[in-house]
Design a protein around this nucleic acid. Structure first.
Length: 928
DNA sequence: ACCCTCACG
DNA sequence: GACGTACGTGAGGGTA
């Protein structure tokens, strides 16, 4: 006879948790189902416990019914301040019952009692009958019930909890927990507790005196302190709190224990439920063999020889490269694919012969399904030289054909490190990876700004796994002797490539838990993860660049540079390298005797634009010539020459690479080439933008958020005057000028604009003084006036800095954290630098979050509007650039504007409108 | 490898 | 009392 084991599921507690931790999904009927989905996956997980040694023989889901319980009669303030359930959660409550029925599980609720009391009652009854009980919940109140034979199970953290857990968390035995909870109170449920006593003090007192009454009795004799006074004054509150946190375990059982026996889960109702809501991943798994086994199993067959469940914290074996396999036969490949199916997830990494993923060749693919369970599948080794020997390996087309169903399987999670690279490579072979997680993005969403945590794999492995990866350089060498990965011998290639997949999977496990625990879910799921595929696509598309136009400009610039060089050398009286700041400094300040001392630690003369402009104003003709020379050299070397070299031979387009982890604030950055700093501010520079063109029959469309950071500042700092100006569609700098100076003209508007930006960046009076060419005192007056007119701003700045100092990070409206380790630096200017960055990060970061959401939604929105020919090509922080058929301009503009203007919704409700300006033309330059 | 300068938001 | 002063990026050229 096997031991009966009752699982009591805290359904109400779970649904709130699921709601807050999961994205706001909507099913095909337009109903919000995020929490329902979370709830369903939890039941699924429990269903998979069926038949296991520790698995359930009996199960019930317990729910709250109504809100008035006997506790309200006891204390009318109980749960009084709890805000009403969120709008999009309310309709999900009845669906929870549907989900429970779909799993053929009993659902128990009783008016006048909370779910906790029902759970307590069943626990007492089951223990009395000699059963085991597992309470599926993470609620601290329920931890009071833990005792021999009774444990708790947190499905989200995949953790079983016994008395040890309570001891670690609260420092007391489970049977003392009620006393601790009574002393500390609970602000969410409005249990009063004793003022000034938190978890630490409560635990200390109970440990010392044994129980609540002893603490209260001993209070008069304690050392005089605020706490002692509070204990005496609030003894009755403590006793009331004790009764409020006590679980009521003597109600009548709504259903007899034996009726909760599990009889197996018929698949039909479950299937109907899953397909009604479109939960495809689970639906597919319902068909998968592993799940089918679990579903068919009945509780009664929990036999003695069933394998024990793996311990929840099985120590992960150290990385052992000798265990990796080189896959060169079909059988072996099939075996790995089956292993991935059995796990439900697989880490993937691709190896290529070049780093440029738009035209590189695929050399091999590595997979990992568990610690040290990793393999490398070579498909393109030895092919670079027709005389080189080609090692035995599987045919590339065959491997890709076998992997395609796995990599595209809705039910199998693909995990990669910087997946957009692998996505681009595989997309060229007709494979669209989905669903996926990207560990580089996960790392960034957890640790942006943490100086110790690099997001690249080698550094992440060092930091999180204490493991030194084989570096790419070690494998292929550097400089002239560098070889292609295709030439790396297979054993060596396997060690390197399989390790990458192994490490990626190990990192994923850690990050996955942390993301849930550290509140990074929102930004990861709602902002960054969806973007990975979008970015991969944009990089892959590239943008067409007119080579002739650029080379014409190059020639013009060359001529201009040569002429200026002659003039400059003539004025200097000698030839010198104008680009050398050292030589230029010597000419200007030593030979020609202009004033403008040394600067910087290096002791070198500074010759930057502000200095040269000062000299020019003093009447130094050489200074303005040098400035012109610099402008042209910059444009030629960085843009007109470099961009031509970046045009891809195969596509005729320029493919930038976006880094999702490049900017600490959450912005993207662009490299090879950087297309986020193409000139626009000067007329000469702007000509370069005209080289970015559309294909025949198409046009370029540029859509810019107008003043998005100032709008966000107005919202986040709650500045009524600014919000009203934005709502009325006013010129914001003019409105600021009116507020500060009482009149609007060119001068005051310009100053107001400078101040507006200065505010976003964390102002100092000296900085502002320098920009406006006024004294520091005048600048201080201006700042003070700004704070007076817009009081929210100074409050926001102080609060932001204070929070950052306290917690170590700032947060955007979407919960993106940026860490500022230097905000507690002892060195003043380091600390102040961190403070300025901390003021800016929430604003810049929220703006980045919003445009990222717009980007993730853009493709589906255009598709839905019947505009599949509209292609998003570039992102420049507050601007999106598209290429589209001429005839689509009007329809596309409407969709693009709508998606961009509503990108924050429904997660964040802004109190200012977001404005978008759209322009079109034959080139990027013409579209502005 | 580092600094300086300058292109963008 | 002096210091150095706006946030976030990437790239090219010169120099050591």
């Amino acid at each position: 006879m096997t031991q009966n084991h009752l699982y009591l599921v805290d359904g109400s507690g779970y649904i709130f948790r699921a709601y807050h931790q999961l994205p706001p999904l909507t099913n095909q009927h337009g109903q919000p189902v995020g929490a329902v989905y979370g709830y369903t996956t939890m039941l699924w997980k429990l269903a998979e416990e069926l038949g296991k040694a520790e698995g359930p023989t009996h199960m019930a889901v317990i729910l709250d019914k109504g809100s008035h319980t006997f506790r309200n009669d006891m204390y009318d303030q109980y749960k009084a301040h709890r805000p009403p359930a969120p709008e999009d959660l309310v309709p999900q409550f009845p669906m929870i019952r549907d989900a429970t029925r779909a799993f053929s599980l009993p659902c128990i609720e009783e008016a006048g009692y909370e779910a906790d009391d029902i759970i307590a009652t069943y626990t007492r009854a089951a223990v009395a009958a000699g059963w085991h009980v597992t309470i599926v919940s993470s609620d601290k109140d329920l931890m009071q019930l833990i005792q021999p034979g009774v444990d708790m199970y947190d499905t989200m953290k995949n953790e079983r909890r016994g008395a040890d857990y309570v001891m670690t968390k609260f420092g007391v035995r489970p049977d003392q927990l009620g006393d601790v909870l009574a002393l500390m109170g609970d602000s969410v449920d409005n249990v009063p507790g004793v003022p000034g006593i938190g978890p630490k003090t409560a635990s200390k007192l109970i440990t010392e005196y044994g129980d609540l009454e002893s603490v209260l009795a001993a209070a008069p004799d304690m050392k005089k302190s605020k706490m002692q006074e509070n204990l005496i004054a609030n003894a009755e509150m403590a006793r009331l709190s004790r009764r409020l946190v006590a679980l009521h375990d003597t109600m009548d059982l709504p259903e007899p224990l034996d009726d909760l026996a599990l009889k197996g889960i018929p698949p039909e109702p479950l299937q109907a439920f899953l397909s009604h809501h479109g939960f495809k991943t689970l639906l597919n798994r319902l068909g998968a063999p592993a799940a089918a086994v679990a579903m068919a199993a009945t509780a009664a067959v929990a036999s003695d020889n069933a394998p024990p469940p793996p311990p929840p914290h099985a120590a992960e074996p150290a990385i052992d490269r000798s265990l990796y396999e080189t896959v060169v036969t079909q059988d072996a490949l099939d075996r790995w694919i089956a292993a991935a199916h059995a796990e439900g997830l697989v880490a993937v990494d691709t190896e290529t012969d070049m780093l440029d993923c738009v035209s590189c060749g695929l050399v091999g693919i590595s997979l990992a399904v568990g610690p040290n369970k990793a393999c490398y599948i070579p498909v393109g080794h030895g092919g670079t030289d027709m005389f080189a020997e080609r090692p035995e390996q599987l045919d590339k087309a065959l491997v890709l054909a076998k992997l395609k169903p796995l990599l595209e399987d809705d039910a199998i999670l693909k995990i990669g490190q910087n997946l957009k690279y692998d996505m681009t490579v595989l997309r060229r072979h007709g494979i669209e990876i989905a669903p996926y997680d990207d560990t580089i993005v996960m790392s960034f969403d957890l640790d942006a700004g943490q100086s110790l945590a690099g997001h690249g794999m080698d550094e992440a492995a060092r930091v999180h796994l204490d493991h030194q990866c084989i570096s790419f350089k070690e494998v292929v060498g550097t400089g002239k002797s560098q070889i292609s990965f295709a030439e790396v011998p297979l054993p060596r290639a396997t060690e390197y490539a399989a390790e990458d997949a192994d490490v990626t999977l190990r990192l994923w496990k850690r990050f996955k838990t942390r993301i849930a625990n550290e509140g990074a879910n929102r930004v990861y799921e709602l902002v960054d993860r969806p973007l990975v595929g979008v970015i991969a696509q944009m990089e892959h598309r590239g943008i067409k660049v007119d080579r002739e136009h650029l080379s014409r400009l190059s020639a013009e610039f060359t001529a201009g540079i040569a002429a200026l060089e002659t003039e400059i050398h003539a004025i200097a009286g000698q030839p010198f390298a104008i680009g050398s700041t050292q030589q230029l400094g010597a000419i200007l300040f030593d030979k020609l005797g202009y004033k403008g001392g040394k600067k910087g630690k290096s002791g070198a003369y500074s010759t930057d634009v502000t200095i040269l402009e000062q000299l020019a104003a003093q009447g130094a003709p050489i200074a303005s010539k040098v400035l012109e020379w610099r402008q042209l050299s910059k444009l030629k070397s960085t843009y007109t020459d470099a961009l031509q070299a970046q045009i891809n031979k195969d596509t005729g387009r320029v493919h930038t690479s976006y880094s999702l982890t490049g900017a600490q604030t959450g912005r993207l950055s662009s490299t090879d080439p950087n297309l986020q700093n193409i000139p626009i501010r000067t007329e000469v520079g702007r000509q370069i933008r005209h080289a970015f063109i559309a294909e025949p029959g198409n046009v370029i469309l540029a859509a810019d958020y107008s003043q998005i950071e100032l709008r966000l500042a107005a919202h986040m700092a709650d500045v009524p005057a600014l919000k009203e100006a934005f709502a009325a569609g006013e010129d914001i700098h003019a409105a600021t000028a009116m507020q500060l100076f009482g009149e609007v003209n060119r001068d005051t508007r310009g100053r107001a604009k400078t101040i507006n930006f200065a505010i976003l960046y964390g102002i100092s009076r000296w900085g502002l003084a320098g920009r406006l060419e006024i004294s520091a005192d005048e600048a201080q007056d201006m700042i003070s006036r700004y704070y007076e007119r817009f009081p929210g701003i100074s409050i926001y700045i102080n609060e932001t800095i204070e929070k950052a100092r306290e917690r170590g990070y700032t947060e955007t409206l979407f919960g993106r954290k940026t860490w500022f380790p230097r905000i507690r630096a002892a060195v003043q200017h380091e600390r102040q630098g961190a403070e300025r960055a901390a003021i800016n990060a929430p604003i810049q970061g929220t703006s980045a979050d919003i445009i990222k959401r717009a980007m993730a939604r853009m493709g589906p929105a255009l598709e839905a509007a019947g505009l599949p020919g509209v292609k998003m090509l570039l992102q420049v922080h507050d601007e999106l650039v598209f290429e589209l058929p001429e005839g689509d301009v009007e329809a596309a503009s409407a969709v693009i504007r709508r998606v961009m203007e509503t990108a924050a919704e429904p997660i964040v409700k802004l109190s200012v409108p977001l404005g978008v300006e759209i322009g079109t033309g034959p080139s990027w330059g013409a579209a502005h």
